[in-house]
């Protein structure tokens, strides 16, 4: 399974089973997005042999719909519930991808999610790593899932396509 498929399957499964929503994957982006407006971003750090991060970037209106569905109550502003719900979403996606990578013999440890939100912000981390930025659409709007990592044990030039073992994780 390649990284695109892993992200796609993990995200679709979580939206289907936990939110009863269909999340349709789009074409993976060729460039990383780092500027966001009126959005919520949840980041799960990756440590171990591999170092990296899983991030989910969601525009505020879409984040409100997702949180309302998680909690089964209407949420109308970005508050602690929204940050917690989007953080948990990122945690589940990261966990599913970790399971795929672990099957291929990779050593992964996940951090507790961190959440950023605001009218305008930039996310600038692991610029020397490689991975995938994949857009998704649900009825309430679009969002972006990113997974970037590099292998700590063999130097900074070794990117995700090399750190993922014989199963062929990498840009695809």
């Amino acid at each position: 399974m390649d990284l695109n498929n892993s992200i796609s399957q993990a995200t679709q499964e979580i939206f289907q089973s936990m939110l009863m929503m269909e999340a349709s994957p789009g074409q993976a982006l060729t460039e990383r997005a780092n500027s966001f407006v009126n959005s919520v971003t949840a980041i799960v750090g990756i440590a171990g042999t591999n170092k990296g991060m899983l991030a989910i970037h969601i525009p505020e209106p879409t984040a409100l719909v997702i949180t309302s569905s998680f909690l089964m109550m209407e949420v109308t502003e970005v508050d602690d519930d929204v940050k917690d719900a989007i953080g948990e979403l990122a945690n589940m996606v990261a966990g599913s991808i970790k399971a795929d990578l672990t099957e291929q013999g990779q050593d992964f440890k996940l951090s507790i999610p961190s959440v950023v939100c605001g009218a305008e912000y930039e996310i600038d981390c692991l610029t020397d790593s490689d991975g995938v930025s994949m857009p998704f659409s649900i009825e309430a709007g679009d969002f972006l899932v990113e997974f970037f990592c590099r292998n700590n044990s063999v130097g900074t030039d070794t990117l995700v396509s090399d750190c993922s073992g014989p199963g062929g994780f990498g840009r695809g």
């Binding site: 998680f70 917690d84 507790i112």
Partner: peptide, 8 residues
């Protein structure tokens, strides 16, 4: 630690 997950 997630209030959302406890509710789910």
């Amino acid at each position: 630690d997630s209030n959302t997950m406890r509710k789910i």
